[in-house]
Design a protein around this nucleic acid. Sequence first.
DNA 1: ATCCTACGATGGACCCAGTCCAAGTCAATA
DNA 2: TATTGACTTGGACTGGGTCCATCGTAGGAT
Lengths: 144, 144
Amino acid sequence: MMRLVSMSDLLERLRGRGWRMTAQRRVVAEVLDGEHVHLTADEVLARATARLPEISRATVYNTLGELVSLGEVIEVATDGRAKRYDPNAHRPHQHLVCSGCGAVRDVHPSGDPLSDLPASERFGFTVSGVEVTYRGLCPDCGRA
Amino acid sequence: MMRLVSMSDLLERLRGRGWRMTAQRRVVAEVLDGEHVHLTADEVLARATARLPEISRATVYNTLGELVSLGEVIEVATDGRAKRYDPNAHRPHQHLVCSGCGAVRDVHPSGDPLSDLPASERFGFTVSGVEVTYRGLCPDCGRA
DNA sequence: ATCCTACGATGGACCCAGTCCAAGTCAATA
DNA sequence: TATTGACTTGGACTGGGTCCATCGTAGGAT
């Protein structure tokens, strides 16, 4: 399957937003873009270190945080475990998390949960978004 | 408003399940039942300490964990912050979390997200549940 | 009423994910 | 190519939570 949003596009967008392009940031962005799974910060660090041995943990966290707040990457909390980072931020989707090993898959449910929350159930909050997280056991963890 | 599920019911159920009833467990259960907000483990510890000064942090965590696995209390992960504990486990509901202060409200959206996930989107997982978490700013945090 | 014992409580060490900071480095402009 | 402020570094630190060896006690047995 062809990727609709390529790496070069991402770097392009970041440069356009005034990002100073450093070797570290490029490597982190490339690692995220190159993997189709949802990596933890430590896994990103490990893969980044393979390409750029002197990169630091703090920089990986900084860069991931920036990518998240720029809306280029989505943070997936997996309850007790380390957060995972999802580079597929441009197509709306939800997540299916394995309770056994923490693996994450993107899923595309029908329906719009935001419209399922009437004003009377918003209690004066300014509701800005909704996350739907399905829980279960992946095929590997399922065969106990 | 009258509580439909009272404290004595809870203690009753626990005893019925073979729980050894200790002063510590009683205090933790009472604290959860007495509050209508969603407390963190530390808040539970603080309130429990007020009634039983020598109670330990480990016991609070143990007891909360037991209540969760007995299905009497629901754990609400609030992304980076401490987990919160929701004693309202007997009526299905979802959560609205303030991105500013972490406060949690119970909400009751219409619709059933589980049925919105077709088999083709389950990837061989045994899907056991779904959480819907609305994000936004509460009235207090909203007025910047 | 008392004894027994397995289940529960204790608290302090420990762990992990993540953040902070002061000092050093370097990308992008002029 | 000189300048400078944004970026990186690594090591200390924090918060939330877990572990564990030891001590205490609820509740059945007698």
